[in-house]
Design a protein around this nucleic acid. Sequence first.
DNA 1: CTGAAAGCGCTAACAT
DNA 2: ATGTTAGCGCTTTCAG
Lengths: 367, 367
Amino acid sequence: MPGPPHVRRPATLASLAAELGVSRTTVSNAYNRPDQLSAPLRERVLEAARRLGYPGPDPVARSLRTRKAGAVGLLLTEALSYAFRDPAATGFLEGLALACEQANQGLLLVPVSPDHVDVTAVHQAGVDGFVVYSVREDDPHFMAVLERPVPTVVCDQPTGVEGVDRVGVDDRAGMLGLARHLTGLGHRRFGVICMRLAAGHNDGPASAQRQESITYPVQRDRLGGIRDGLAEVGVDWADVPVIERFEHSVEAGRDAAEELMTAHPDLTAVVCTSDILALGALQHAGERGLSVPEDLSVTGFDGVPEAGRAGLTTVSQPVLEKGRIAGELLLQRGDRNRSRRVTLPTELVVGSTSAAPRSDQRFFSGW
Amino acid sequence: MPGPPHVRRPATLASLAAELGVSRTTVSNAYNRPDQLSAPLRERVLEAARRLGYPGPDPVARSLRTRKAGAVGLLLTEALSYAFRDPAATGFLEGLALACEQANQGLLLVPVSPDHVDVTAVHQAGVDGFVVYSVREDDPHFMAVLERPVPTVVCDQPTGVEGVDRVGVDDRAGMLGLARHLTGLGHRRFGVICMRLAAGHNDGPASAQRQESITYPVQRDRLGGIRDGLAEVGVDWADVPVIERFEHSVEAGRDAAEELMTAHPDLTAVVCTSDILALGALQHAGERGLSVPEDLSVTGFDGVPEAGRAGLTTVSQPVLEKGRIAGELLLQRGDRNRSRRVTLPTELVVGSTSAAPRSDQRFFSGW
DNA sequence: CTGAAAGCGCTAACAT
DNA sequence: ATGTTAGCGCTTTCAG
């Protein structure tokens, strides 16, 4: 907060003690260890505090002394405000908040400047540990977190970081199951819409080279799951167009679908790596005059409430649970000897947006 | 966080200074005032820090010294996790996060134990100020916030607190407009579903006495707006059943509507003090076999996205804007001489859930 | 450009 | 049950 400092605290523990002619310890005890002094004395102290406008022990000074901040820091890739717009993130946050609440710990959302990289906020954060939600492997904020001498738990990505606990789901297996569902229905001509794959702003086809250098493990696994599933029925991944979007929004999904379907009007299935993108694709299909699932199958990933309402075929993951476990992993100190890894199950949800392709499309590429 | 303290920091600013044979000031400057020392020296310091595993100045110690925490505290009535479920709260949070982000300030969600009242978390919070979101006038956590010697901004409620800035909307005027819309359509037989009115768990009719002792100003104003609007056409408030719900959820709204319509099957309009409750009422109408708006008009308040999708007639308020302004009010220190009050406009949104009552119901009470 | 001195406000041992 | 002693790790005048 810019500007002049706050009003100087009117009174301190020391001044109160002096006023009362007791020691600082006694005043401190009046607040922190009521059983360490007689009730009357304690009341005298509290009464004097009220009279002098002493607001109780300063939290920061206490933190310095006790080496406990009473809060967990949360690092998000995106702008802070994004967390409240993405339903998957919201579910995660709800779970994390639940865990913090239960342990009576605060949850500090660390501001991440959307524009120029500035990790000072990570350094400033008075927290006892960090939860990192789904960031790039080479995220500078994440690096800054690792330098802090506090425990850290990662959700989703990055994976496999030394000395850091992690909770996530088996993205690859989830997508593999979904791919099998689609190939089982008879689909052979696929298109894919995915989220940001690496640093840099790429809106458009994800070249083979770009796919080689993915820095978001979750996207890597989800794409890998599709690829493996298609390989099982002989579909070559090189023939599958993959469209990447920097922004993660329904609008971006719609837009990507337009790009995809314009270049490849013969696709029978569009697989999206998130529900949000899929909802956009669904929207585009409507605009294009395609019936879903008759003319086109569309699938997502995450299982957010909106997807459920739209009847989207998707892979559902327990986001709230993920958040709660992330919090518990951080808050429950156990053997910190070696890092713990928790992988939650996903579930294939077959909705009304996937079906067998029209028979005339099934194994032909047109007349 | 329970358990043993963290690993002791491997090195401190002092130990680094000793190692290098420079003063602590110099090391401090290397981090905070790069222009105060030569580049080579600074590099030497930073290099030594890396080598010794010095993670940079301890944020808590720095906070104590500078009297700045670099974070804003957020107090919510409900359990922390609730904030992520209520779409109106989510919008507010997004706006607030935006403001914090821009000022590079953290946002600390203060845990509020749902069960036994425990305000220690408010005392522990290392923050430069508080934003209080929509709490009861006599909320003990709020009282604790007021005792802290830091600036505070209230969103919505409580209103009229000395020395505290406030941002909100004109709830009364908004509801008055909505009431006029309904009376203009010809409605005369109303029922109301409202949120929690005061401390204590009351699920059921809100007696006149209970309505006298409302401690949530927002609910007081919204009910008052309806009352005034109905009074204009001669409908006596005493004849209007008001059903209160402790929980704020679609399910609670559905349930309240059932209670209301069972006791008063002749109503032509159900006014809800929130969209969430209204969505529940809509659901109940369907279950009851009533067509909306032909058989029954249903209205909400807030203008959340879900309501828009459902075509709900409601009073829309700029929640994101409210959040942003709350943040700005706190972060922009201006004349703190006297408290500032910001009242944002609401907008009547006429959807497809309100229409004239069936003519045979219009001015008759049935045969 | 660098150093010395002086705390920020509090709590945890260890006495008494 | 209360007091004494020693810092927690840092920044900030003010001199050199």
